[in-house]
């Protein structure tokens, strides 16, 4: 099974729109969607000054560690995690088998509202993600068919 993630322009827009809708309806500070390897697929909301790459990588590490804990206890996964801080809180949930949705929120929202709005958005995001992962493999390989061995040699010739 090849689990490479390929995100095309059109799917990227659909995911971003779904995240934006959720962010606005839930009065969240920001919404991030990433895969379980920690690659960021979409981010919406107030993200200025946030290190989104680190956020994605740490969240994926957290999900992996929590998944490991779940298996030790005989659970398949713990699909939802909430971390509440003094000012900022994080709601992390699994979307299907491969995606992680992260919602950052502060006093403008509440855990109840986040849960309610996520329930509405979940199916939408799941369907878009299934479209992405079900894309035929031939289509995915196209970018690399354009890259030549010389391109790769040139790339590493530069210091």
């Amino acid at each position: 099974m090849n689990t490479q993630t390929v995100l095309f322009e059109e799917d990227s827009k659909r995911l971003s729109q779904a995240c934006l809708n959720l962010q606005q309806e839930a009065y969240a500070r920001a919404v991030f969607l990433l895969d379980k390897d920690g690659q960021l697929l979409a981010n919406e909301g107030e993200i200025d000054g946030l290190d989104t790459t680190s956020l994605a990588s740490l969240t994926a590490g957290n999900i992996a560690a929590t998944g490991g804990l779940a298996k030790l206890l005989g659970e398949k996964e713990f699909p939802v995690q909430v971390h509440e801080g003094d000012k900022e809180s994080i709601h992390i949930s699994l979307i299907g088998e491969r995606l992680i949705l992260v919602i950052l929120f502060d006093q403008r929202s509440s855990l109840g509202l986040i849960r309610l709005k996520l329930k509405h958005a979940y199916q939408d995001i799941l369907e878009i993600s299934q479209d992405i992962f079900d894309k035929p493999k031939e289509e995915m390989k196209s970018v690399f068919s354009e890259i030549t061995d010389d391109d790769i040699d040139d790339f590493f010739g530069l210091d």
């Binding site: 689990t3 993630t5 390929v6 995100l7 322009e9 990227s12 895969d35 390897d37 690659q39 970018v143």
Partner: peptide
């Protein structure tokens, strides 16, 4: 596994 984003034109790999 690698991640190819046509929207932001990025290839991300994990080592």
């Amino acid at each position: 596994m690698s991640f190819i984003n046509y929207s932001s034109r990025e290839i991300n790999c994990k080592i």
